[in-house]
Amino acid sequence: MLLTKDLTYQYDSSTSIAFPDLSIDQGEHTLIIGPSGCGKTTLLQLIAGLRSPKTGSIEINGEKIDSMTQAKRDQFRGQQIGLIFQTSHFVRALSVGENITLAQSLAGHSPDMAAVEGILTRLNIGHKLNKKTHQLSQGEQQRVAIARALINKPKVILADEPTSALDDQNTEEVIRLLKEQANSVNATLIVITHDNRLKDKFDKSISL
């Protein structure tokens, strides 16, 4: 269960933004759609605890993100939230597999190679395990990002424009995999986008 209430965010002294309240059930898939510059990404970063709201509260599974200490919030994010960005970033020096075990370590879990191989195989990139991430195509990179977001079996998956860099075919594929993997761990999936291709792929969508 993800709840937000009276959320506002102050960019600078003159600009602030207010967000509609959200109430999303556990395991539900939600699309948040809106034009560029409407604050979609800010909303996602607030939910992820990467920014602090000016007012309002964010609750994930009964825990209030906004009142946590920085360290607690970092830890909570590592364990409970899987993040996927528009362009995927990786630790350049590490291989695909190592990037994913890094997510496990940073969340405080011990690396589990079998789980990593399993999820990569389910995403059809099992053979890329030992490749460097920059040797992969955009579509493949986004799949690795999905694998990384899911490896800790988070309660919430937040995807920020996950398909904007992808062609139609890859978009189709990535969204399908995202939903499939979110279902497999019963995670709440929130995708924010300005990509109208995604509109009819989600049952529930919120416009900003």
């Binding site: 992820a48 990467l50 970092d74 830890q75 994010r77 993040l83 630790v91 890094l102 940073l106």
Partner: peptide, 19 residues
Amino acid sequence: NERQYELALMRSMGASPTT
């Protein structure tokens, strides 16, 4: 400069500033 994304990424994955 070239690693700021991966550092931010590590932070987003739960790494504390101390880490």
